[in-house]
Amino acid sequence: MLRLSIHYGIHFFLPLGIALFFYKPKFLKVYFIFLLGFLIDLDHLVATPVFSPDRCSINYHFLHSYLAISIYILAIFWEKTRLIGIGLVCHIIADTTDCMLLNSGF
């Protein structure tokens, strides 16, 4: 239960903190864009089973691959894609943390 709380806490509160700190005048719009990073979880729909609580998403699903992650990081450096890039990287940070907790037996 704690692993789940940490995982989803990062998913929701890391983007919120970034939106409030760096984009305060328009933080709600920015926060919504960051949350669009959840769309990369659509790649779970092609996995069998679709959801497995003991599976690490990183480099298992194609939108969680190392190549995709490097593209998300690069997106941060281009102004037109910066917000979605930050949202995607926040998503990857949450999933990476979940993998680390899973591998530590948490």
Rank of each mutant, 00 (worst) to 15 (best):
I10K: 03
G9A: 10
S70L: 12
F77G: 09
G105I: 01
I71H: 00
L88W: 13
H61E: 03
L28G: 00
M100V: 14
W78T: 13
F77K: 09
T97F: 13
I40L: 06
R55Y: 12
A75S: 09
L45Y: 02
L14S: 11
A47C: 10
K24F: 10
L88Y: 12
A94M: 06
F27W: 15
C99L: 04
I73G: 07
L101F: 10
L20V: 05
H61W: 00
M100K: 14
L88D: 09
I71W: 05
L88C: 14
T96M: 11
M100C: 13
L20N: 04
L74S: 12
V89K: 10
L74I: 11
D41Q: 05
K26L: 02
G17D: 00
S57R: 09
I10M: 01
A68W: 08
C56K: 06
H7G: 04
T81S: 15
C56R: 07
P53L: 10
P53I: 06
I86M: 07
L39G: 13
F51R: 05
F21V: 10
L39A: 13
I92P: 01
I6P: 00
Y8V: 06
L14G: 11
I86Q: 08
M100G: 07
I33F: 09
I40A: 05
I84C: 07
A19K: 05
L28W: 00
T48K: 14
T96C: 09
I40R: 03
D98C: 09
I58P: 03
F34K: 04
C56Q: 10
L35F: 07
K29I: 14
R3P: 00
R82N: 06
F13H: 09
I40K: 01
G85D: 07
L35W: 02
G87I: 01
N59E: 12
Y23D: 06
S5A: 15
I73E: 07
L101V: 04
D43G: 04
G85I: 02
H61F: 08
Y72R: 08
G87H: 06
Y60P: 00
L20T: 01
T48I: 11
I84Y: 13
I40C: 03
I71Q: 02
I10T: 03
H11T: 02
E79M: 09
P15D: 12
F13M: 14
L42P: 02
L88K: 08
P53R: 07
A68C: 03
F27Q: 00
Y8K: 06
L63H: 11
G85Y: 10
R3C: 02
L45E: 02
T97E: 12
A94S: 14
T97C: 15
K80C: 03
K26I: 13
A68L: 03
F32D: 11
I6R: 08
P53D: 06
K29N: 11
D43M: 01
I33P: 04
I76Q: 10
A47F: 13
F27H: 08
Y31K: 07
H7T: 05
L35S: 12
H64A: 05
S65K: 02
A75E: 01
H7S: 06
I18D: 07
H44P: 01
V30A: 11
